[in-house]
């Protein structure tokens, strides 16, 4: 946050548009580059949450699965706050391997 952003906030003014432009671009390019439309991303997000929640209790409101881009490399970032581990681990779920690919 810059000094200008703070002043804008205090005065209730719209922030400078360059920063908005940058953020919107980064988001749209992450989708363009990965060829994932928001609908597919939502579906993937649901399925990932489903698998993870078999093992641990997740805070669904805080959890987030997003695409982030840096230096033309797009990463899937899952940020899933865990409330607590589940006591009974499900038996031999084949999708369990999915979990290892996720990090924040």
């Amino acid at each position: 946050m810059t000094l200008r952003d703070v002043i804008d906030k205090l005065l209730g003014r719209q922030p400078a548009s360059a920063n908005t432009a940058k953020q919107r671009l980064q988001l749209v390019l992450a989708h363009d580059r990965s060829d994932l439309n928001p609908e597919l991303l939502q579906q993937m997000r649901r399925e990932i949450l489903e698998v993870v929640s078999r093992y641990v209790e997740i805070d669904f409101d805080e959890g987030d699965v997003t695409l982030e881009t840096e230096d033309r490399v797009t990463a899937l970032v899952a940020n899933l706050p865990i409330r607590r581990a589940k006591l009974t681990v499900p038996t031999a779920a084949p999708e369990a391997a999915l979990g290892t690919g996720l990090s924040s």
Binding site: R4, A16, S17, A18, N19, A21, K22, L25, Q26, L29
Partner: peptide
């Protein structure tokens, strides 16, 4: 700051 900075474009 009403136009994308040079570094914004080259970074992106």
């Amino acid at each position: 700051q009403e136009m994308l900075a040079v570094s914004d474009v080259t970074d992106i």
